[in-house]
Structures are given as structure tokens and as C-alpha cells.
């Protein structure tokens, strides 16, 4: 049983949202008592409204990624569970200005079911609305079934591109094409060193034996692809990069965005060590890192481990990446 600072387990998500809104009261607003939270200035004229969402428990994802140059609203579910359509619809209505709305979320069965129902409800209201699904996690399905893959730690980068491009006035259909290109070029893989616990039950979602690590473990304890004895940082970095490079594939002289993400209880010290090894290995492979980020962008409670995301960039993606973004969970000055 992991010790956690919570009150009634049934109130976790509600209290998480209340705390977030109190801390950021000048920037965000909660829509009634729903699990939909929007930028305070929403709806904004002249831009496509960006709605993100998913289960709670992955903070700063998704809640903390609303802000200028990022998403406009978020719909939150319970811990590790998709938001219901009524919350999603409230988020949509909150950001529907005059250019339509984009739903941007991870490819999980529950999310797809609920967001699709909300999208249908919005269309019945006459709202111009489209969807882009994020599916960057390479171990969750083979390449030929890329559309079955889960979305993971390229999220904040894709959301950042969506925020910048919509702010710059990109129309909905162009935005969908642009973001699908970015998703298509994104690849992520993680390794877990210990399990996460579900806060409602206090129980682990899986068990990982002493001295073992598992590649491809999902953000909710979904079983991975390869369980091995604990490796060094260098061996871990090389193993992950080999998988990622082979998958797109990334080739010599490609220019990439590199994201090293901590799952919750892995230290930044470890992340920097892995980063050093990744830079060296990618340099051997003559793959150029345009920009790198380390941090906790997408967590899974107190799971230990890291994930690595590589995104092949082009000039259009670089342009929108370089524009500033200000959200409580991600800032690009």
C-alpha cells in the first residue's frame, strides 16, 4: 500500500480540479461543477478552439496544458478513465469561437468512445468539429496497425503545435492535416522500473519483480513487450533508441525533437544521465537533435521509469514549436 495525501478517494478528481483552478484562478475557469476547465478568456475569436482530455492521474497532462499557445480547454475523467461526453461537450461549448473546434487526445478505447459521442453531440448543435488522435507508442501494436497504437508522451509537443498553429490563425482542416503529419512522425517508448498504484484502491496495477525492468509498459500498467534484468542507463538508452529508430525509421541527417519524460518517481538526475547517453548514441547514428526536453510531462502516479519520444521535424513543425507557449504545466518562452 503506497502512502498518499488524499481525502475521500471518491473526491480525488474533483479536489484535483479545485486545487488547480484555485492556484491558476487568473488563467482558467471551471465550467460549472463539471470536469471541464477552460482558459479564462474562452471562447477566443479568430482561432480554432483546442480541446484536450483524458483520464486523471497523469499530471501535468492534461489539466495543466491549457494556456496561451497551448490547449484552450480540457475535459477530465476519473483517474485513468476517459471523461464522459457531457464533460467533453461542456469543454467544446466553452471554446467554440468562430473557427471551429479540434478534439486532440490519446488513442485509448474509452477515450475514443466518449469523445466520438461528444463530437456527434457537438455536430448536432451545428459546431464545426474535427478530431486528431495521438498514437505514438510503438510497443502497443506493430507498425502495420499503427492506428491501434496508444498515445503517450508526445502529447505536450503535439498540443503545443496545435496551440501555436491555431493561435496563428490556421483553419481547422489545415490544422488537422498538420497535426496528423506531426503524429505520424512521432515515436515513443518507455521503460518501467516499478509499478503505479491506483489512488482509489491503493493497490498496484501490476507487479514488477525486484531487479527487473519492463519495456513498453503502458501508462496504466498495461503489460509491456520485454521484461529484463535491470540495465544501466546507457544500455537502457541504447535499447530504447534502437527500437524507436527502427520503427519510423529515423535515418542519417534526420532532424528530431527529443523528449525524455519521467513517469513519476524517477529523479531528474537519472533523466540527465539517460539524456547524455541518448545524445551520444544519436550522434553515432548521425541523427541531429534540433531540440531536447527533459521533465515530467506525462506521469503515471509514482511509477518509476522514463519514456523517450523522438519526433522527426520539418520546417513547418519547427516554426510552430519555436512560438511561445504559456501553460501551468509547460512553458516555451
Amino acid at each position: 500500500m503506497v502512502k498518499k495525501l488524499i481525502n475521500n478517494p471518491d473526491d480525488i478528481v474533483n479536489e484535483l480540479i479545485e486545487g488547480f483552478v484555485l492556484i491558476n484562478s487568473k488563467k482558467v475557469k471551471r465550467i460549472g461543477d463539471s470536469n471541464a476547465i477552460a482558459r479564462i478568456e474562452s471562447p477566443i475569436k479568430g482561432k480554432v478552439g483546442i480541446v484536450i482530455g483524458g483520464g486523471a492521474g497523469h499530471e501535468p497532462l492534461f489539466l495543466e496544458l491549457i494556456g496561451e499557445g497551448m490547449a484552450d480547454a480540457v475535459a477530465h475523467g476519473q483517474v485513468f478513465a476517459a471523461p464522459s461526453p457531457d464533460h467533453i461537450l461542456k469543454a467544446i461549448n466553452a471554446v467554440d469561437g468562430d473557427r471551429g473546434v479540434l478534439l486532440l487526445y490519446n488513442n485509448y478505447a474509452g477515450d475514443v468512445l466518449n469523445f466520438n459521442i461528444a463530437q456527434d453531440m457537438a455536430r448536432e448543435q451545428g459546431i464545426n468539429i474535427e478530431t486528431v488522435l495521438i498514437n505514438d507508442e510503438i510497443s502497443s501494436a506493430p507498425l502495420e496497425r499503427r492506428e491501434d497504437r496508444r498515445g503517450t508522451t508526445s502529447d505536450h509537443f503535439i498540443i503545443k503545435l496545435a496551440g501555436a498553429a491555431s493561435k496563428a490563425g490556421m483553419d481547422l482542416s489545415t490544422l488537422v492535416k498538420f497535426l496528423n503529419k506531426a503524429v505520424y512522425n512521432s515515436r515513443s517508448l518507455g521503460v518501467s522500473l516499478s509499478a503505479c498504484t491506483l489512488p482509489q484502491t491503493g493497490l498496484s496495477t501490476f507487479t514488477l519483480e525486484e531487479g527487473k525492468m519492463e519495456f513498453g509498459m503502458g501508462l496504466h500498467g498495461e503489460a509491456g513487450v520485454k521484461k529484463v534484468d535491470l540495465m544501466t542507463a546507457d544500455e537502457t538508452a541504447r535499447t530504447i533508441i534502437d527500437y524507436l529508430v527502427a520503427d519510423l525509421p529515423f535515418v542519417e541527417n534526420d532532424e528530431i525533437m527529443l523528449i525524455i519524460n519521467g513517469y513519476g518517481s524517477t529523479t531528474r538526475m537519472e533523466m540527465f544521465i539517460v539524456a547524455k547517453n541518448i545524445y551520444e548514441y544519436l550522434s553515432e547514428k548521425k541523427i541531429n537533435i534540433y531540440s531536447g526536453e527533459i521533465g515530467e510531462f506525462c506521469t503515471s502516479q509514482e511509477m518509476a521509469g522514463i519514456s523517450v519520444t523522438m519526433i522527426k521535424l520539418d520546417d513547418e513543425m519547427k516554426k510552430y514549436y519555436e512560438m511561445p507557449a504559456y501553460s501551468p504545466g509547460y512553458i516555451k518562452p
Binding site: A82, S84, P85, G110, N114, I117
Partner: peptide, 12 residues
Amino acid sequence: FITSIGGTTGPI
């Protein structure tokens, strides 16, 4: 169930 529960459970 469909509109207010969420997760996979709600719609299914």
C-alpha cells in the same frame, strides 16, 4: 450511462 459515466464502462 453514455453521457455521464465516462471510461469504457459508460458507453458500453
